[in-house]
């Protein structure tokens, strides 16, 4: 019966796909909120105010600039995500050459 070997192949394909999904998801799914957290941290540093213990702290413009940069990275990745969904709905997908995506036919 060929069903047995197709089953083994399914396991094999799934194993390969799972590793790739895990890798991509760690980079995007864990990386993105971590960059965002760095942005929140920088913003807190930049705006001064109070620490968690309530002690007053001075603000630092460099912190705000860094925060804006980090939030921009997050926004860029979110925009890429939306673009990917739009392109996927049209039966295409994105290929990356450096930072800029390009539409290609789905394999």
């Amino acid at each position: 019966m060929s069903g047995g070997s197709a089953f083994v192949k399914d396991l094999h394909y799934a194993g390969t796909a799972i590793w790739q999904v895990l890798l991509a998801s760690v980079v995007l799914g864990a990386g993105l909120p971590v960059i965002f957290a760095l942005g929140v941290r920088s913003f807190a540093w930049g705006s001064g105010g109070q620490s968690a213990e309530g002690a007053p702290r001075p603000g630092n413009p460099a912190g705000k600039a860094l925060a804006i940069l980090l939030f921009a990275v997050v926004l860029y990745v979110l925009a890429l995500g939306i673009y990917y969904i739009v392109v996927g709905g049209h039966g295409k997908e994105l290929e990356f050459h450096g930072l800029w995506p390009e539409q290609v036919a789905k394999k």
Partner: peptide, 8 residues
């Protein structure tokens, strides 16, 4: 973020 990344 994890859900979005895994789904996409």
């Amino acid at each position: 973020a994890s859900s979005a990344a895994v789904i996409l």
